[in-house]
C-alpha cells in the first residue's frame, strides 16, 4: 500500500495540463490500482507470470506538453549486484526518443538502478515507452521482462492503439465487441 500511496503523492506535485472538466485525465485515475494490492486482495496476491524480478520503483506515468523535450527519470529495483540491460523504444507517432536506446546497468547496494530517457512529445495522446529488460543475477540466472512508462501528452484523447472497438449490445443487452471474420460461404 505504501507504493500506491507514494505514487499518488508524487503525482500530486506534478503539473496537470488538463482542465478540470477533463475528468479522465487524472493521475489518480491512471495509477489507481484496482485489484493488485495486498489490501484489495485480502490475504492472496496477484500471481504474475515468470520473468525478471525487476520493477519500476519510481514514476511510471509522465505528463508532457506537445513539443516539450524532457528527461524522464527511470528508477528500477532489482537484486543487489544484478546486471541489467534495458532496451528502450517508444510509440513513434507520439514520442521521439532523443538519446541512447540501450542501457547497461548494475543494481546497487540499495537495490536500485537508475537512468534517464530524453524524450520529445510530438502529438497529443497517451503513449508508451517500452522498457525491455534482460537481467543476470550474481548467481548467473538470466531472465527478462517488459515494463512500460506511460506518457500523457496534452489533454486526453483516444487511446493510442487506434484499434479500440466500439461496443454493441447483444440480445441480452450485454456489451460486445464485434470482430470481423474472414468468411467463406460454400
Amino acid at each position: 500500500m505504501k507504493f500506491l500511496t507514494m505514487m499518488i503523492l508524487a503525482a500530486s506535485h506534478m503539473p496537470l495540463l488538463a482542465t478540470a472538466a477533463d475528468d479522465e485525465f487524472s493521475f489518480a485515475k491512471l495509477t489507481g490500482q484496482t485489484l493488485n494490492t495486498h489490501e484489495h486482495m485480502g490475504v492472496h496476491g496477484c500471481e504474475h507470470k515468470p520473468g525478471a524480478q525487476i520493477n519500476v520503483s519510481g514514476r511510471e506515468f509522465f505528463n508532457l506538453q506537445r513539443g516539450q523535450l524532457d528527461d524522464l527519470s527511470v528508477d528500477l529495483t532489482g537484486i543487489v549486484g544484478e546486471k541489467i540491460s534495458v532496451q528502450v523504444s517508444a510509440d513513434t507517432k507520439g514520442l521521439a526518443l532523443q538519446g541512447p536506446q540501450q542501457f547497461e546497468l548494475e543494481v546497487d547496494a540499495n537495490q536500485l538502478a537508475s537512468f534517464s530517457v530524453p524524450v520529445k512529445a510530438l502529438l497529443d495522446g497517451r503513449w508508451v515507452i517500452n522498457l525491455i529488460v534482460q537481467s543476470q543475477t550474481a548467481d548467473g540466472e538470466i531472465s527478462a521482462r517488459a515494463m512500460a512508462l506511460v506518457v500523457q501528452v496534452g489533454n486526453m484523447v483516444a487511446l493510442s492503439g487506434g484499434q479500440q472497438k466500439a461496443t454493441q449490445n447483444d440480445a441480452q443487452g450485454a456489451p460486445i465487441i464485434v470482430l470481423p471474420a474472414q468468411e467463406e460461404i460454400l
Partner: peptide
C-alpha cells in the same frame, strides 16, 4: 534461456533514489 536482438550500448551509472519494490503487486 534465449534472448535475441540484444545489442551492446552505452553504460549508464546508477543513481540512488528511494527504494520501493512494486509488488504488482484473455456467397
Amino acid at each position: 534461456y534465449q534472448w535475441n536482438n540484444v545489442v551492446g550500448a552505452a553504460v549508464k551509472q546508477v543513481a540512488v533514489v528511494s527504494v520501493l519494490t512494486a509488488l504488482t503487486a484473455c456467397g
